[in-house]
Design a protein around this nucleic acid. Structure first.
Lengths: 194, 194
DNA sequence: AGATTAGCGGAGGCACCCCTCCGTTTCAAC
DNA sequence: GTTGAAACGGAGGGGTGCCTCCGCTAATCT
């Protein structure tokens, strides 16, 4: 577990209130926010989030003084999950491991938009730590695949994640088109090694 | 010039008012809308667009009864330009022509977001005609490159444009990163031919 | 069970946006 | 230059979202 990942998970642990009703509301808010950010991106309405959570707007603001706080927390949660997935995949063969992780990255429909918005948006300590943590999670997989000669050596984890998140953020009316397009781009990622 | 392109350019010609002041305002609104949509996507504020154009909100609504009208017109303009570029490139060698056109597609910073939003959003006759027109413009370039054995045969113009627009829609803090990432993906587009 | 106090929720003030309507201005035809 | 008509623009009503504040509720502690 990288040090950044520790920072991220500690950041998460420190938030949850102790009183049972407060903790319940906190969880409901996070779930609602996750949904809302997935649907409308980082601009989702806070009042709508409170409504979805079945909670007064005041409660939302008590837990998350600003939109950024809330967004950071949701984002950190997702990144944390992704880091765990990367660890699980460490045993697979190099290309499979990398590919599987990227697949998970894409499948994170819930936060896809949030992750993209966060890659784009302004910086903050939490965002930086999260991004670093996500890179730390993916980088070993990438490097292993590169050492195995299955991935071109001139690509960085930063490049790779932006590539994949861009492709996965477009709408694909046709069934299976997203996977097809992604596969084409990943051929490029492997190209130099074939 | 494809029949869709004719539909698109006729749609455009029919709008501009005859009276000189009205025509001036129409142009100013279009330019302002182009800017605003580029900055904020299809959700840009109409009042802000009128303000940028130095025109009352009433004038905006007289020219474009709904947001969709305005958006369609801006979009049709851009698509029209892209079609012309494709024709100009017809003389270049196959891969260069395709690559150059895609480059232009990316460089269309002005409407990048609008084009993406339009690819994603709901359908309308105008959008369908525009998309068709854009595909008609790119398809010959793609097919020529495929016949020349420089591009994998199993990719469609639809795939290719979604791939490129996804990649170009992400934020790249690092100078030149967008081009690097795009080049990697385009290696995948050529992969099967190498 | 009662007292304490953390936590709740929503009313309300502010800002922004949408869109309509109509009194005023400007064009262009004669 | 006059005049009719086309075009202008912005005030204003309705809606939604942001955020604060404070009287009320209910969890926790003893």
């Amino acid at each position: 577990m990288s040090s950044e990942q520790v920072v991220v998970s500690e950041f998460l642990a420190a938030q949850r209130p102790r009183r049972t009703d407060a903790a319940r509301n906190f969880d409901a808010l996070l779930a609602a926010a996750r949904e809302a950010f997935a649907e409308h991106g980082a601009e989702a309405s806070l009042e709508d989030i409170a409504r979805r959570a079945g909670v007064g707007i005041g409660t939302l603001y008590r837990n998350f003084p600003t939109r950024k706080h809330l967004f950071e927390t949701v984002y950190a949660n997702e990144v944390n999950d992704l880091s765990l997935v990367a660890e699980e995949l460490a045993g697979e063969p190099p290309w499979q491991a990398l590919h599987g992780w990227l697949q998970r990255f894409v499948d994170y429909t819930v936060t896809k938009r949030a992750i993209r918005d966060a890659l784009a948006g302004e910086e903050s300590d939490v965002f930086l730590a999260c991004r670093k943590s996500m890179f730390d999670a993916g980088e070993p997989l990438l490097e292993r695949a590169q050492r195995a000669g299955q991935v071109r050596p001139d690509i960085t984890i930063d490049d790779l994640l932006r590539l994949v998140s861009g492709i996965s953020s477009v709408a694909y009316p046709e069934e299976g088109q997203r996977d097809r397009v992604l596969a084409i781009a990943l051929d490029g990622v492997r190209a130099a090694a074939r």
